[in-house]
Design a protein around this nucleic acid. Structure first.
Lengths: 156, 156
DNA sequence: AAAAGAGTCATACTTTAGGGTGATTTTGTC
DNA sequence: GACAAAATCACCCTAAAGTATGACTCTTTT
């Protein structure tokens, strides 16, 4: 926050210097003040908008205490939608493409049968995929898988 | 958007007039320009921030076409979290307290057995509740119920 | 007091999901 | 071409989930 204010101040100073400089270079003396004011207003309005946009990117801080390692980790999760796939987590978990695909279909409320029909593969295959999927996510029910998937931001 | 720009322009004009007026009233002549610039910058930065904050309040427009009544309704849903219970929908659907409670437990990934244990009631009762719940939501699987529940904002 | 709504429970039955194991086929990589 | 990873499928069995129906108890409303 202090950085922002400092940045604003410095920018304003620079701008004034710049404008004063141009004042002696060109012949825009008559409307100089209005032009300056307009320019400053424009620039700071844009900066303000940018800052405003940045401010709304709410960050949720999840504090995970790993007792075993006696280390306190802070994971900053960007909660400002829309959904951006967390590819790191995806590879970290070792989820394959197919497994990921099936997870999202599960999340959409489809039954295994429906998923099988949709992907033109056997029901058994869906079961194998989902089993492995659950194992990798450390869950044992599809509803939990969906929950975890959303939490880890690997599905929308 | 055009309103915003107009507002900015008018404000800038007013400000300049105001400042010019004060220039002849007080003796702040020496640093007048810097003060003006600073004031303008400040005001427009604040305006920008406000605008930026307003811009990020994404609104999702759901268009519901009621064919029977030949009326097109537009429901504007504010999507800028956090969860606010849509009580209207809740009563509209006729969900009872218990059913709603069970829906949220389902959404948390609990099995029927777990819910039964948690609420100290029989597994069969959970089944009856969930059945009626599904019927009211127009679904036939718990994953779909969770989806719909979130969509209708009756669960977080 | 009767009716209605909500909550509870049971029994019986069907469907879907999940776990375990093993096997075959594709596909991409060295 | 060999190898590994991914994807496919089958079979078996158990566990959950879901459907249908009927019934009992409270509580609130009429």
């Amino acid at each position: 926050m202090k950085k922002q204010i400092l940045l604003y101040g410095v920018l304003l100073g620079l701008l004034i210097v710049l404008l004063k400089f141009f004042e002696y270079k060109f012949i825009i003396r008559d409307y100089a003040f209005e032009i300056y004011a307009g320019l400053i207003a424009l620039i700071f309005a844009i900066l303000g908008i940018w800052l405003g946009l940045k401010l709304t990117r709410k960050k949720e801080v999840i504090v995970v205490k790993e007792i075993l390692k006696e280390v306190v980790k802070e994971i900053v999760v960007d909660k400002s939608q829309p959904f951006v796939l967390n590819e790191k987590k995806l590879t970290e978990l070792g989820l394959t493409q197919r497994e990921h695909e099936i997870l999202s279909l599960i999340a959409k409320g489809h039954s295994n049968k429906e998923i099988a029909d949709k992907l033109f593969i056997s029901l058994n295959t869906i079961k194998t995929h989902s089993s492995r999927l659950f194992e990798k996510l450390g869950v044992n029910r599809r509803t939990q898988a969906v929950q975890k998937g959303k939490e880890l931001r690997i599905i929308p």
